[in-house]
Computed example of a mutant assay.
Amino acid sequence: MQNAFLTIGKGPLEAAATLRSSPLNRFFHVAIPLARPGYISAAILGFAHTVGELGVVLMIGGNISNETRVISIQIYDHVEALEYGQAHTLPLLMVAFAFVVLAFLYGVQKHPKSKAVSGVVF
């Protein structure tokens, strides 16, 4: 999200300031809408990262049988029961899920095409 705000630059905020926009108004009506791709990226990557967490899920959600079951806890249970075939299938599904989420993220984001000439980006 920090990079999203840095890529906005000072230009749009200065333009809003010349139109007598208050700092709060510039933030909510200029900066936040321009940083929207950063919010979307942060939300998707945060979700994808949290899917694989084990410790946080156990601390917050617990391990209530048939109620708070997530894939990471299921993998742990399969390994403890020496069911390695099933334990190997679930991480493969998690990697596929992460790939789909990241492919979606990069597909949704708009990457401006720029020409670099002698280190200067136009």
Rank of each mutant, 00 (worst) to 15 (best):
F97H: 12
H88L: 15
S41T: 13
L102A: 13
N3C: 08
A81M: 12
L82M: 14
T7C: 05
E67K: 15
G62M: 07
E83R: 14
S114T: 14
F28D: 03
M94Q: 06
L92N: 11
A81Y: 09
D77L: 10
P91M: 05
I32R: 00
L24T: 10
G61F: 08
L19N: 11
G62P: 06
K110Y: 07
L13W: 06
K10M: 09
G11Y: 01
S22H: 13
Y106C: 07
P33K: 01
L82W: 11
L54M: 03
F47V: 03
H78C: 11
Q109S: 11
S72C: 08
G52D: 06
N63A: 10
V121Q: 09
K10A: 12
F97E: 05
K113M: 12
R26H: 08
A16N: 03
P37D: 02
V100M: 09
A87I: 01
P23E: 06
A103P: 03
L92Y: 13
L19E: 09
A103Y: 07
S118E: 10
N25I: 04
P33N: 03
G62S: 07
H78K: 12
I60D: 04
F104M: 13
V120C: 04
P91W: 02
L6Y: 03
G46E: 10
S22N: 13
I75M: 03
H29D: 07
T18V: 13
V108Y: 15
E83K: 13
K115C: 07
A98V: 12
F27C: 00
G38T: 02
G55D: 01
V101T: 12
A42I: 04
N66R: 11
